[in-house]
Design a protein around this nucleic acid. Structure first.
Lengths: 193, 193, 193, 193
DNA sequence: AATGAATGAGTTTTCATTCAT
DNA sequence: TATGAATGAAAACTCATTCAT
């Protein structure tokens, strides 16, 4: 399996760095190859085309978000606490990788519609996990049973996303992690029973 | 002033249509010119370059949003009601112009970072008005005085934006207007005192 | 009509020269543009893509062969004489344009199958005219009524083609025109009644 | 001698199949290696480069044509009959190997000029044998002593070649072998004393 | 002898912008 | 003002060949 070979990850990581430092449209395949320390042609031994690299970046990185949330879902804690841990995890992963934050919040969004639809497919799994937390919260009586799951999900994700994007656009100059409790409190107030 | 001449608006409107129907990357200057019914070169009598067209699209269209909210702010109604009217106005303007909705929610986001920074400048005026409503709500004791204005603004705008984007991505197949009250209720619950 | 504009012919002629002097695979679009004295992009105002240039070369040049033979067909002379004039015309047109001879006999044959099928379509019209001469000869009792038109056509065209290709491969160092009468005599002997 | 080792022939045969099935430009070295059941690198233990494979294909296959004609030349039969057997042999060898027919008549012709000059060198031996038959026919008084050997050879080979190419281009859907007598008759009529 | 992962040179085409009319 | 023909820079991808194992 190509995805398990070291060069695969090497190229994915190089793509994140190249895109973050040069911008989406200036991250030519040759630049990614250079950062990865391989020849241009080597890229195509591991990826079908440039789009495939970009989707892989998203899939590989988003995979960590998903895995973490799956673990959180298993914990014997309230939905309220799970929501907190999810927000904290989301902030934390992007806070600790400034390149990745730039890529997901700014650069990858200027990809073409086709690519973004594919990225959205990957994102869906994550949003489904969020839905699980919301449903659990409602079932447990923690969240208002009247709320529309879809709207609530959009509020939660929209708020998280907008918060991080603002932070990135402000050159990550304040401490994102400190915002987690307040974001959680705000969202919770809107949803709790 | 060029902006007042008929061809200026004609080109701006053509750009919205051309982008919505062909996609951001397929909306070449020559295509915009064709839709506008002018020669390619004429575009450059009214706009410095292609980016200038796109910013103008955003500025002109966002101008309506801003004007409407300014009127709302003047009204002698509670901050809670102003917030509702703002959400309703935002939904309404995009609901009634499907081309514009596609352009703002999907297409213009794949523009490069530079252009998006400029778009954000335009957006700032709108967000400042939102801040006014939030401050007023706090001062009037309608909203929780503990909330962080910036976060609250990100929650409100993030939720609105995410809701509309989902609607557009689902091909505008459900009634966006009907969501306004619930979005308002959710956001309000999160902020009210 | 683009084909009537001077630059169209200018580019077609440049393609013949560029291919003859550099070889099929070394005749890049930029080289053709340079020879034509236009910018690379200008090529694409007149031709859909590179293949379109090559087909056009063949179509334009073959057009002269066809036109001449059409005139020959109108003449009030025997089929035998028409065949002679056709051979003579064929030899003459390539003898007087050494670049074209190289292109049709050597270079264009290394194009891909798809392009060659298209070239063959163009060639068909020419071969149909040859068939007319053969049929007329048979009807007039000049040629053996037993001959298979298709085979005879293949013999005539195959012989002409092989003769010219040999001449080109020998760097056009002997006088092709002098071979016409003997080629005619040989072919005729094979076909006459 | 490498040419005698089994893998040499294995690769040459694989090349014929790979080219016939994929086309000249789509028959990459790696594809030939795959068909031959060897690693890419192994190819280079037996051939200098890709061109060397292609020339070898032509040389090996043409070798059979030449050997057969040499045997025919030894026979105690008239030049007229020798010519018939040569045509029959030529048709027969290509009729019985559809892959080879496609390769020699269509695919190998799109090789570059350099390669085709080398292929012509190999072809020369074959054409020299044809010349022997023609000379013999003239000396024996069977063929017209006035004919130009070179032209006659071009007529014979051009006709044979054109006939086979037409057959291949028509997807070998009619019986090529049946054409031999008529082709022979036509050519003979043109040359006989 | 055999392998196959890695290399890196090379070309068509698009499209924002200009400028002579 | 308005036109539109002409410009030319820029980038993804393929594949013959090598060489460490």
């Amino acid at each position: 399996m190509k995805r398990d070979k070291p060069k695969y990850k090497q190229i994915v990581d190089a793509a994140v760095v190249a895109i973050a430092e040069n911008g989406y449209h200036q991250a030519q395949v040759s630049k990614i190859a250079k950062v990865a320390g391989v020849a241009d042609g080597t890229i195509y031994l591991y990826f079908k085309n440039k789009e495939d690299i970009l989707i892989s970046v998203f899939r590989e990185k988003m995979g960590v978000f998903v895995e973490n949330v799956k673990v959180i879902l298993q914990k014997e804690i309230s939905a309220t606490e799970k929501l907190y841990k999810m927000i904290d995890n989301h902030f934390s992963l992007l806070h600790s990788d400034r390149h990745l934050a730039i890529v997901t919040q700014l650069e990858l969004r200027q990809s073409n519609k086709e690519l973004r639809y594919k990225i959205n497919e990957v994102l869906k799994e994550y949003l489904t996990l969020l839905d699980s937390i919301l449903k659990e919260g409602i079932e447990q009586g923690e969240f208002d049973e009247e709320i529309d799951i879809r709207l609530a999900r959009q509020m939660v994700f929209g708020t998280i996303d907008e918060t991080i994007t603002s932070w990135v656009m402000n050159d990550q100059k304040y401490d994102l992690m400190k915002l987690a409790p307040e974001v959680h409190r705000l969202l919770l107030k809107g949803m709790k029973a």
